[in-house]
Design a protein around this nucleic acid. Sequence first.
DNA 1: TTTTCAATCGACCCCCCTATCTATTGAACC
DNA 2: GGTTCAATAGATAGGGGGGTCGATTGAAAA
Lengths: 150, 150
Amino acid sequence: MFLSQTAEYAIRAMSAIATLPPGELVRASDLVESTGIPPSYLSKILRRLVLAELLVSQKGKNGGFALSRPAGRIRFIEILYAVNAFPAEGRCAFGWGLCDSVKPCPLHGPWRRLKDRVQDWADNTTLAEVAEAAKFDQRVQLPTGKASGG
Amino acid sequence: MFLSQTAEYAIRAMSAIATLPPGELVRASDLVESTGIPPSYLSKILRRLVLAELLVSQKGKNGGFALSRPAGRIRFIEILYAVNAFPAEGRCAFGWGLCDSVKPCPLHGPWRRLKDRVQDWADNTTLAEVAEAAKFDQRVQLPTGKASGG
DNA sequence: TTTTCAATCGACCCCCCTATCTATTGAACC
DNA sequence: GGTTCAATAGATAGGGGGGTCGATTGAAAA
């Protein structure tokens, strides 16, 4: 696997929220059903997403979570950073001996290409695409409470 | 991080071996120095690489490890498979509800693109590139014992 | 055949990510 | 104000990848 379990969870949770009408609050317990993420762990992940200002939260009755901005303006890279799932700049992950731009290690090139590809993907993928796919594809279970009502 | 620690170690170890003259055996203890991988754990990883037939090993005095074939014919994807670091076919890693080609989950598209990119990278990167970089860049410590003895 | 060296093998430990549980805070509704 | 609901916070338990150890096998050299 490329991404950690937590990173996958974060993407899944954000995606589930993105399929809702903008601004609508969704409870963590509803997200549990639609995402299959362990309840208590989901809370922690949501917290991190709130701290990263990707989500806003509302306590108390009728509270819940919502995107902090339109889905099209939330890129996957931001989600990955929020859960610390993207390598910091300047570090060659293959870390073979000393390695900087002056004295690159023999694995610097391959690593660089991999990182660039993943980053490009994460930079250019937004939650809007997910929301679109879900809309287009209403076979998916949506956590809107009474989805079939209409 | 995209790749597990073990996957990184495997790539590093293979790369270190690839910088040696073809056919030359290198001891695990030498690889420890050049790669910085914990000794006892390196043995385990080398074992897996032997089982995957990416390396050949020789027991006893003057024994060691060597590539099973030319560096240019060992792709990174094979290394990743050897240490079980690449997702099996057919599984949507984001695993959001049911997901197959007929009923793709909303994250199927993004996931597919990511996987394709990583796979393309791993398919088209071989140890030859690493060996070239190391040759071109002799500032790197090579585990050849007496590298300076020319 | 003995010694030496180095890979192999099995068993085990440990840490951190993952996951859970139990309060507590705080907002809405009555 | 009191009740209810839901996010927040901290403390704590699993589990698996990462890491270690000791004994064994087997090949080369003496």
